[in-house]
Write a protein that binds this DNA or RNA. Structure first.
Lengths: 345, 345
DNA sequence: ATGAAAGCGCTAACAT
DNA sequence: ATGTTAGCGCTTTCAT
């Protein structure tokens, strides 16, 4: 072991050849006599040589590194996404530099600036602030948005058909006989929420009903207990809904906590349908009826779209994936109408 | 906007001064006339210059980057750890390169090799394979182990007092009157499991009881449904325990699923105590009695220990943090003896 | 207060 | 089949 790690030069002199040949052996970029090759590997072994990606990156102008910026790594959706993005990247020989914007536009900007300075070859971003996305687009750094997108911002993105997803959840509840279906969402400033709420609104309209959003819509924000409290209040009101559609992982958490706090059982007292990701660690207690975001496909598509840009071989198109409904035990047929007493359906 | 991003040289010529001065302005490494400074910033603005961390790293021999390798990012423990490590690193101006070993020693080695080649300034590792840790130690890359450690491997580590943690959980159940306490663990090959099981064993012994490990101990592994199935079987046996101590996040998942599958209610039919991390997304349905790993402190301590090594200013010591017991609704006083048949509760 | 220039470790164009 | 060497963008030593 040397005090300073061995360089390609050390390897070359140890093997009694030139650095060019060592480099070519390492990269397989030209034919080398087997004997020479072997000498190189022997020298590498003896010196404990390990390549220097930094120097290589500087020289080649590419870093074989990509950035992944999520808005909340503690959210299982992003944890699963990160896991699969990393796997796909590693398969391509890429490292992942990781950032957690914590839903802060300022923090997101810091992270993106740092990734730019690091000269990552591309960035997969679950965006928070439109201005940051526009700034990156201006810098021409390959960028793929995931989960959310922005109106009027022309960046390749991978999203879920949230309008359809919300309909899926709504239809399930409607078919079970529910007519008073409340929603819990994650904030109307997000493209995802807008699409999902529109899906619910349209689903109501299809049945000739105007969705009473002031009464039946709860904003759970991205943290805190606003959603939980809102739900408790709604369920305590005289005209309580018979079903709840939670339009995201966080809204699901808010809903479950609200029900728990209000001692409202599910599906006995109210039916619940969630929206988000499935993961062994997520909601192990009971199987919840939910609209499943195809997160693995999202990860794979994000990486693919990014490499399409990096390799510039294919015109880049955005992707919209379809969610899947999966029935669980948190939803059940409507038992009794709310206003008039009657027999079972 | 230029085709190629501006370099420090472009800035220098634009400002009509030398690259040395630009560099010094950027780094604040020597006094520069205010007027010159301003010209530099103006040029930077005009050219949209952004530093080149790669070139800087090559020259300085440090990358301002650290590696974080966890064994399962989908496990909320590591998701929360990653979140806080990243926050602490960013505060020091460091980027985080992220790896997920997925409990595979081979994959861990690949990731560590890549981090070495990237010349990260240090690595925080939730280790899988002892050999990899020894290899890194030999390369003298600053390394902090987190969560697990290895006997006989002298690397700074941040662990939890798992022996005490397990006792805490056991004591809670014992005080409630439980005498037949089963455990679900994550695999005896891990230092954490060993310490936790030893804690249970010693707690039993303190009460003059020999822990019947062949009967009351279930290995949930790190995935699959072995733990779930084992628990179902145990609970169906004629001598079923009155309480379960799940010694980790994954064992908790296995236990909860097993109980759910066996239609065993908690705490009515059996008391459950968990062991792991609290996070808003984790177990929102019910408040589970659990031994809480102080994950934020662990993240902070890991980063601190790593910088102690990088900056070589302080002799590095390992850290053992104390877990905290938090009572929830999943455990209750023992209701009735187990041996004699009885009617429904 | 500022500049010139060496050189970090590597790749690849241009030799032979 | 192999070698020589310029140069990627920056920091920093040594001058002035």
């Amino acid at each position: 072991m040397l005090a300073n790690p061995a360089t390609i030069k050390d390897v070359a002199s140890r093997a009694g050849i030139s650095v060019a040949t060592v480099s070519h052996v390492l990269n397989g970029t030209r034919k080398v006599r087997v004997e020479t090759r072997d000498r190189v590997f022997a020298a590498i072994e003896e010196l404990g040589y390990s390549g220097h990606s930094i120097a290589r990156s500087l020289r080649r102008g590419r870093t074989a590194t990509l950035g992944l910026v999520v808005s909340d790594i503690e959210n299982p959706f992003f944890a699963v996404l990160a896991s699969h993005v990393q796997r796909a990247a590693l398969k391509k020989g890429y490292q992942v530099i990781f950032g957690n914007s914590e839903e802060s536009g300022e923090r997101e900007r810091e992270i993106l600036d740092a990734l730019g300075a690091q000269r990552v070859d591309g960035i997969i971003l679950a965006p928070v602030a439109q201005a940051n996305v526009e700034a990156m687009a201006r810098r021409r750094i390959p960028l793929t948005l995931v989960n959310r997108r922005f109106e009027g911002v022309d960046a390749p993105h991978v999203i879920v058909d949230d309008h359809a997803g919300a309909s899926l959840g709504f239809d399930h509840l409607w078919t079970l006989g529910h007519r008073e279906i409340a929603i819990v969402h994650g904030g109307m400033q997000h493209s995802t929420t807008l699409a999902r709420v529109a899906g619910v609104r349209d689903a109501y309209r299809q049945r000739g009903i105007v969705f009473d959003e002031t009464r039946l819509s709860i904003d759970a924000g991205r943290s805190g207990d606003a959603g939980e409290a809102g739900l408790v209040a709604l369920m305590a009101s005289r005209q309580r809904p018979s079903a709840i559609l939670a339009l995201g992982n966080w809204p699901m958490v808010a809903a479950i906590r609200g029900l728990h706090r209000g001692l409202i059982r599910c599906p006995d007292d109210v039916s619940l349908v969630g929206y988000g990701v499935t993961s062994p660690y997520w909601m192990p207690a009971s199987s919840i009826s939910m609209v499943e975001q195809p997160v693995i496909q999202m990860a794979d598509a994000s990486v693919r779209l990014l490499f399409d840009q990096i390799e510039k071989v294919v015109p880049v198109e955005s992707v919209m994936l379809q969610p899947l409904f999966s029935a669980g035990e948190s939803s059940a047929p409507l038992k009794r109408p709310l206003r008039r007493a009657s027999g079972k359906p």
